[in-house]
Structure formats: structure tokens, C-alpha cells
Design a binder for these strands. Structure first.
Length: 845
RNA sequence: GCGGGCGUGGCGGAAUGGUAGACGCCGGGGACUUAAAAUCCCCUGAGCUUUGCUCGUGCGGGUUCGAGUCCCGCCGCCCGUACCA
């Protein structure tokens, strides 16, 4: 046979059409087969598919194709998380409509995904900006309102005083508005909230059932929900009033040396007649609202004339207004224990307040000075009257008991988790379906009037919410009394859109968000794959929506995702030069640079550029590789193979040209091997090659195991080994059989190559994508012989071959017969011999 | 600041507490070729007094017959931190 090359430019398109024509990946909910729902986090349509998407969807694709070969009816859908800020930014910068921009991006990205040959059921595609989708979302939101899970309250936002608009945290840079450069202020707005805290206990409990979630994600969610037992109690104030505080560390109450209240605490407000106090309160309003900004900002306080009486010692503690205390948490006031809380320590140091030790590593160290920081750890209570000698836990209980019997406080379970603020003062999102009437108050839009659609005629030439300033959109009649009323102009957080999309993929009736019976057939998602950056918010919100919908009887599953996998990023080295005049680095893209093993030069002028760290691909660092170019050059299968090779899927994957070229070479190497399928083997028993057959069966079993564990890099390594072994094996029927099965084995990763090889070389009938995974003969999985390590004092001295399952005595004898071992032992008395069957013998002298 | 994770050759990585470096990339040598590409074969952690020995999994301790793996304390980097998605 003349040697040919595999041509992905022809084959990729041919097989993508064949799968579409055959409806290979269209999920049938009425199939009698067991169901498997494979889902990757749907993309935001930013414009182009990037390598991170390719990696994410390749992993899901391998699973989907593999599961299909294992006899499952697979649902593997794709859609678009299409609302969000980038569309509005594009509208501002380019003068386009967010909807048009988004639709164009979707069309482009869909075509890109199709060129990679993903086994997706495109019949279920939708975008969250489809009025049909967000209309159903509005109906669900109204249902949750009816169930008492939606309410309104004041909360703080970032306010740009120049642009007169709310800023997202991302739009606040170093405490300033990204466009205006003005110092950001905190401002209060009346906003919509979802009662996720009603489900705090359920969401925490539920983590225990998520055995196939990464331990780290469960831990992060547990800490985020943050259940803790503490004490709420009141101080008697010098002005005759009371100050309620909450503490998770009542055990340290004897260490309290001050109290601190939030700037918008009623007591602070009551003192605001004093211009100094008013000025301080104003100062506290400066800055952004993020936890990181609040926690790292310099601790500032204003000492009020009021003092608080310590409930045990009777000491008068100064009361401060402080910028690090938030009205939203607990009671908006805290007791300051500088010795055992880092924030309090910094505050006390600045304002020269006593720093008392009430916890020590042991009672003898009750007077040990602090080493420049608070000690938040465990220990024994000291300097604390009746608590002395107790553990931290016992002391907490003792204080709570004493407060409750004394009637001045009580134990309370509190959660770190806060209710979910879903209001956004933006255009490109789901309109919140409510109407404000002066007479009737807040009235939901009747369901037969849904969807509340976004107006098309909006402008983005000035900052702020276009819905707010639209001439007619918000002016409506009250559905209840018919009087003139105002439509809500806030839209929903886009995390709401992504909190139930997996249900809509499973079932898409026109008149309802989903059909519970159809949903029950597919849910929960068997494998959910996406980035670790979603470990908390998206995954917690989706879990909450699922539980909330179950709570109001819409569905019967409690947890949406049976198994979760968080994949790493695709990274690339950076190329830069320092701009001589401005002193800042100027970055260059990989296509502008000639990279050799010694370094890199700029194609434009031949001068050297600095090769920087390997970091996440980003436009600003220009270290982006476009999947389209790579697919055009090497074909989809080489890219897919690269995405799965080398790096474990949960870790970052550094992109390299050498790597993708190696993958493209391997595709051709396999193609050549597939061409040898009919060489030599006539099927006679004499041609049976047991060693090769064993390798084949072991590899099939191991690759299946690796895919199921999503250890794609190990599956890839196994396949390399098998390919090497088949290439080296003499011609035989076993070898031909191995080649045919190899095409099936690699097909989840390299589906186009597998189909083309089967069709060209007659390796089987029908589509590989619709074939069964090869069977494994368990008898061939076990080796007859094993290599035994011979150690002296834990150091390797020799290896010997022994029959599998050899007795301890036999292995001991083999070890002692080793000349290398004897030389090392050098006649010393043997104290002990450790034998690990089929593994090693360790001689201890 | 707080919560979580990661750290192994030149590079990506493999390794139920049991032979550290499988597999791939890069690099070196060779075969084939008029030549190149492609392909194939061999070598490739460091060092040494090289039948073999010593060192070596971010740093410092510890547990163990035996530690990349378990424990304690550090360092560095990454993710999240509630209005980026």
C-alpha cells in the first residue's frame, strides 16, 4: 500500500457532517438505555472561543463519547450565558446594540465549536438572552416571590459620584471608578434579594452527599456558608442606652478592651450632630465594598464619649465608630479583643488600647507578651476569672450559659452566608418582573404578561441604566388597581440565568420553564465540568435554585450536579520589552515572535524580547493562541489530543507550539499504523501473540478507568505505550486485532481520525462513534511475573523477577541470594526482614 | 486580611506509605537520503574513585524498617472573597 497522510482539512468536515446527518448525538429522552447527562459550564459569548473553552469542552466530549460507547443514552448540550457587562461595554465603545453584538458572537463561536467536532446535541441550544428563556426565568422568580423567598432591602453598592452610576467591583480600580477616575463611595439602594440563608443548613448538609465533588470545593463552600455558634449580648452604655454585639469568640470576653460600631449604626448616626463625627462617618463611606478592600484598608476609628460596661469586670470600655465594622453583619457592632483577633489587634495598636492575653498555649504562659500579631489559635483560657483553665470550646459554652442564666445575652447560631442580592442597575439582563405602585406597593407582573422584554431602542452614550431613562418603558399601569405605576428597572444578576439552565437543557416546553417528568429522566447531571473560579458562587447559587425549586414542588432532585470536576487554565509564556520612554513592558503575541530553545526574537526587527512567566492566556498580555488557526494548521484531533496530554486536567496546561506539533505527528503515526491493520494476520491460532493481547486488554481496561476518573493524561500515556508495543510487535492476527481496537480506543479523543481510518482501511462497520467500547478479558489483566525490589535499610540494592504470588519465604531467599544485597549488608546481623508480597523485600540490620 | 489549592529533571508530568522520574516535549548521537523534510534506532536528574556508590521531589524539623506521599513550622505562586463571568 502506498503511504498516505491523514488530511484533517477534508476528514474533519466529512465526519462532522456524518454525525449531524445521522443524528448521532441527539439525545432521546424516551430511550430505554440508562441516561447520562454530561455538562460543561456554558460559555459567555465574548467573541471568540479560547483555548480554555477548548480544553473544557474536550474533556466533556471525551466523557460523552465514552459513555455513549458504554451503552448510555447521553445528553450533552450546549448554550450561551449571554447576558452580562461585556455586551454593554461593547455597546459603549463601538456604538452597537448589546443584543446584536451578542448574537454575532454566538454565531461565530458556534461555528468554532463545530469545527472541533464536539459530540453536542445542538437541537437543545439556547441563549439566556432569548426572551423565551428569560421569560420562564421571570416566572420562576415570581414563584419564589410567592413562596416568600424573594424580598427587598437596602444594601450597599459602589457609587461613582462623577458618572452618577453604580459600579461593579470589577469596575473599581484602586478605589477609583474605571472611567471617571473618581474616588468611589458606598451608597445605599433598595434592592431585590433571594433568601439563600433559609437554605443555609440544607446547603451545608447537602455537601455531605456530594461524594464525587472535589474535597476542596466542598470545604470552600462549607467555609463560605460558615456556620458558627456564638453569643449575642448587650453592653450597658454610659449614656443609659444599650449596645447589642455578636461574637463568635465569647470565650475571649475577658480580653475585650473596646467596642466598635459601624458608621451607619444608629448610635453613630445619633452622634452625627457633632461635625467631627459627621466628617468621620463621611470618611467611612469612601472606598469600595469588596471584602478584600475592607479587610486590607487601614483600620480607622473615632472615639465617642460613650463607654460600655463590661458584663463581668464592670470595666468601662471605650466605644469607637470604626470603618471595618459593617452594619450588614450581625448587629453592626463588635467587642474588640485585640489579643485574639488580628483586625482588633491592628486597631488597638493604632489607638493604644490594652492588648490582653486570655488564651495561652499553656497556663504557665499566661503573661507571655504578643509577638506583633494576634493569636487566633486554640489554647487554654487564662486571666479570665471563672473561665481559667478551660479549653476554648468549653469556655464558649460556659460564657453562653452564664449570659443566658443572667438574662443579658443568648447563644445564637449564625451564618457567614448572606442573602443573595440579585438587583443590577443595568440593561443587558433579565428584567425583574415587578411593578411599583404608589397605592398597592410592589406588584408582580401577571404571568400571562410574561416575558417582560427589554426595549430595543436604548442608548449607551451616557453612563447609567438605559432602562431608567428610557422614555416609555417603565411607565405602566398597576396590574392590581390600574393606576399609573412604574416598572422595576433593575435586571437580575447573570448568576440567576446560570442557576437553572441545566434544567432547561433537559426539557424545553414552550409554555413552562421545564417539564418535571423530563427533568427527572436526566437529572442530576452526571458530570459537571468547569473552572475552579466557580467553586463557590455559581455552584452555590445553582445548588440553591435547585433546592428552592424542589422546595416549591417544581422538581424532585435536591442536588443538581452528582459529580463535579474543576479543570485548570490554559497558559502560555509571555513576550515583552520594556518601553524605554515610559518604563512599562510592551507585550507581543506568539505570532509576532520567533521562539527557539535559546530565547525569543521579534520577527519585525530581529531584536530579542524577554520570555516571561507562563500565565493564563489574556488579551492584555497578548499571550493568546487562537484555536481556529491551530485547527486550520493541524486539524481538530491534534488540538483535542494536546488538550488531554501531559498536564493533569485539574492543573494548568501550558500551551506550546512544540507540543501541538508533537500531537500532530502522533496523529500521522497512528494513521500509518491503522494502514497496517490487514497486514499479515490471517487469524490462525499459531499467530496468537499473548504478550501483545495482554497489553491490549490491560490498556483497554486502564484507559476506561482513567477516562472515568477524568485522568486523561494517564489515558494518553497508556495509549502511547500500546501504540509503541503494537508497532514493535511482529505481524500477527493479534496485532491486526489490536489495531482495529486501537481505533475504537482513541476515538473519544480523536474521533475524526478514528472514523476516517475505519472507513478507509475497513477496520469495522458503521460509525465508530456509535460502536461499543471493546470488551476486556479479565484473565488477561494479570501478569505472571513481577519485579521484586530488594532493599537494605530501605535503600534499593537489587531487583529480581519472581512468579506472581510467590511466598514470603521464597522472596526472602531470593533477596538473601543477591550478591549486591550481601555486599551492602557486609556480614552485619540481620534484625528484621520485611516482605511486601509481589513488591519488595527490605533487610534491616 | 480571610478561605482553598499547588510546588517532583531543561519543560509538562508519573508514582495504593514500598524500585522516584512511566509517558510526552526539548536536546544529543546514529540510520535512511545527492540533500532536506518525514520516518526509524539509541542516549538524556546531578555528581563520583562507575560490576557500583552518593545526593536528589520548594525550605526546616518529625513519625516509620521505608516518606514525593503522613504530622508540625515556614517560603513562593495560583484561585475565590458575594456587582467579572
Amino acid at each position: 500500500m502506498t503511504e498516505t497522510r491523514f488530511d484533517p482539512a477534508v476528514a474533519d468536515d466529512r465526519w462532522q457532517r456524518a454525525w449531524t446527518d445521522a443524528g448521532t448525538f441527539t439525545a432521546d429522552s424516551n430511550s430505554p438505555k440508562p441516561k447520562s447527562y454530561i455538562l460543561e459550564m456554558f460559555p459567555y459569548p465574548s467573541g471568540r472561543i479560547h483555548m480554555g473553552h477548548v480544553r473544557n469542552y474536550t474533556m466533556g466530549d471525551v466523557l460523552a463519547r465514552y459513555q455513549k460507547m458504554r451503552g448510555f443514552e447521553v445528553l450533552h448540550p450546549m448554550g450561551w450565558d449571554a447576558f452580562g457587562m461585556p455586551a454593554e461595554n461593547a455597546a459603549m465603545e463601538k456604538g452597537v446594540h448589546p443584543g446584536g453584538w451578542t448574537r454575532q458572537n454566538i454565531a461565530q463561536m458556534k461555528a468554532q465549536l463545530q469545527r472541533i467536532g464536539f459530540a453536542l446535541d445542538w437541537t437543545r441550544e439556547f441563549a439566556t438572552c432569548d426572551p423565551e428563556y428569560y421569560g420562564h426565568e421571570q416566572a420562576l422568580f415570581a414563584d419564589l416571590y410567592e413562596a416568600g423567598l424573594v424580598y427587598r432591602k437596602e444594601s450597599t453598592v459602589n457609587w461613582d459620584p462623577v458618572d452618577m452610576t453604580v459600579l461593579a467591583n470589577e469596575q473599581v480600580i484602586d478605589g477609583k471608578g474605571w472611567r471617571s477616575g473618581a474616588e468611589v463611595e458606598k451608597r445605599k439602594l433598595n434592592q431585590w434579594f433571594l433568601k439563600i440563608t433559609d437554605f443555609a443548613d440544607d446547603l451545608l448538609e447537602g455537601l455531605g452527599s456530594l461524594e464525587d465533588w472535589p474535597e476542596k470545593v466542598r470545604l470552600m463552600q462549607e467555609n463560605w456558608i460558615g456556620k458558627s455558634q456564638g453569643l449575642e449580648f448587650s453592653f450597658d452604655l454610659s449614656d443609659g442606652g444599650k449596645l447589642a454585639v455578636y461574637s463568635t469568640r465569647p470565650d475571649t470576653i475577658f480580653g475585650a478592651s473596646f467596642c466598635a460600631i459601624a458608621a451607619d449604626h444608629p448610635i453613630a448616626q445619633s452622634l452625627a450632630a457633632d461635625p467631627e463625627v459627621a466628617a468621620f462617618i463621611d470618611q467611612c463611606k469612601k472606598g469600595a465594598t469588596t471584602a478584600a478592600a475592607l479587610e486590607t484598608a487601614e483600620k480607622l476609628g473615632y472615639r465617642t464619649p460613650i463607654t460600655a460596661k463590661h458584663p463581668f469586670t464592670g470595666a468601662d470600655l471605650p466605644v469607637f465608630i470604626a470603618n471595618f465594622v459593617l452594619m450588614e453583619y450581625g448587629t453592626g457592632a463588635v467587642m474588640g479583643v485585640p489579643g485574639h483577633d488580628q483586625r482588633d489587634f491592628e486597631f488597638a495598636t493604632k489607638y493604644e488600647l490594652p492588648i490582653l492575653r486570655v488564651v495561652a498555649s499553656d497556663p504557665a504562659k499566661a503573661d507571655e507578651p504578643f509577638k506583633g500579631e494576634a493569636e487566633a489559635g486554640d489554647g487554654v483560657i487564662v486571666n479570665s476569672d471563672f473561665l481559667n483553665g478551660m479549653s476554648v470550646e468549653d469556655a464558649k459554652q460556659a460564657v453562653i450559659t452564664r449570659a443566658e442564666s443572667g438574662g443579658w445575652g443568648e447563644g445564637r447560631t449564625v451564618w457567614r452566608l448572606r442573602d443573595w442580592g440579585v438587583s443590577r442597575q443595568r440593561y443587558w439582563g433579565t428584567p425583574i418582573p415587578f411593578i411599583h405602585c404608589d397605592a398597592c406597593g410592589v406588584v408582580p407582573v401577571p404571568k400571562d404578561q410574561l416575558p417582560v422584554t427589554l426595549p430595543e431602542d436604548v442608548s449607551f452614550d451616557i453612563p447609567g441604566n438605559p432602562l431608567e431613562r428610557h422614555p416609555t418603558w417603565k411607565h405602566v399601569d398597576c396590574p392590581k388597581c390600574g393606576a399609573a405605576a412604574r416598572r422595576e428597572t433593575d435586571t437580575l444578576d447573570t448568576f440567576v440565568d446560570s442557576s437553572w439552565y441545566f434544567l432547561r437543557f433537559a426539557s424545553q416546553p414552550a409554555d413552562r420553564p421545564f417539564d418535571p417528568e423530563e427533568v427527572a429522566k436526566w437529572m442530576p447531571v452526571q458530570h459537571y465540568i468547569g473552572g475552579i473560579e466557580h467553586a463557590i458562587l455559581h455552584l452555590l447559587y445553582a445548588r440553591f435554585w435547585t433546592r428552592a425549586l424542589a422546595h416549591i414542588g417544581k422538581i424532585s432532585v435536591a442536588e443538581p450536579f452528582a459529580a463535579l470536576f474543576t479543570q485548570g487554565m490554559v497558559t502560555h509564556e509571555t513576550y515583552s520589552r520594556i518601553d524605554a520612554t515610559r518604563g512599562v513592558p510592551v507585550f507581543f503575541g506568539p505570532e509576532e515572535v520567533n521562539r527557539s530553545s535559546e530565547g525569543a526574537t521579534l520577527l519585525a526587527d530581529g531584536g530579542t524580547v524577554e520570555v516571561g512567566r507562563v500565565i493564563k492566556m489574556s488579551k492584555s498580555k497578548k499571550n493568546v493562541v487562537d484555536p481556529d488557526n491551530i485547527i486550520a494548521r493541524h486539524g481538530a484531533d491534534a488540538v483535542r489530543w494536546f488538550m488531554l496530554s501531559d498536564s493533569p486536567p485539574e492543573r494548568d496546561l501550558p500551551w506550546s507550539d512544540a507540543g501541538i506539533e508533537g500531537c500532530a505527528r502522533f496523529v500521522q503515526r497512528l494513521w500509518r499504523l491503522f494502514g497496517q491493520a490487514s497486514a499479515g494476520g490471517a487469524g490462525a491460532d499459531a499467530e496468537y501473540d499473548k504478550a501483545l493481547d495482554r497489553k491490549l486488554h490491560q490498556t483497554v481496561a486502564a484507559v476506561a478507568e482513567d477516562i472515568e476518573a477524568l485522568s486523561f493524561n494517564k489515558a494518553v500515556a497508556r495509549i502511547y505505550e500500546l501504540v509503541g508495543a503494537v508497532e514493535k510487535a511482529p505481524l500477527s492476527s493479534t496485532r491486526s486485532d489490536a489495531i482495529r481496537k486501537l481505533a475504537v480506543l482513541v476515538s473519544p479523543m480523536m474521533p475524526h481520525l478514528a472514523e476516517e481510518a475505519r472507513a478507509t482501511y475497513g477496520l469495522g462497520t458503521g460509525l465508530v462513534a456509535e460502536s461499543a467500547w471493546p470488551d476486556v478479558d479479565p484473565a488477561l489483566l494479570v501478569d505472571d511475573e513481577v519485579t521484586i525490589a530488594i532493599q537494605h535499610m530501605g535503600k534499593l540494592r537489587d531487583t529480581v523477577t519472581a512468579p506472581k504470588g510467590a511466598s514470603k519465604d521464597a522472596l526472602e531467599a531470593l533477596a538473601l541470594a543477591s550478591a549486591n544485597l550481601q555486599r551492602s549488608v557486609d556480614g552485619a546481623a540481620i534484625r528484621k526482614i520485611i516482605v511486601v508480597p509481589d513488591r519488595l523485600v527490605n533487610i534491616v540490620t
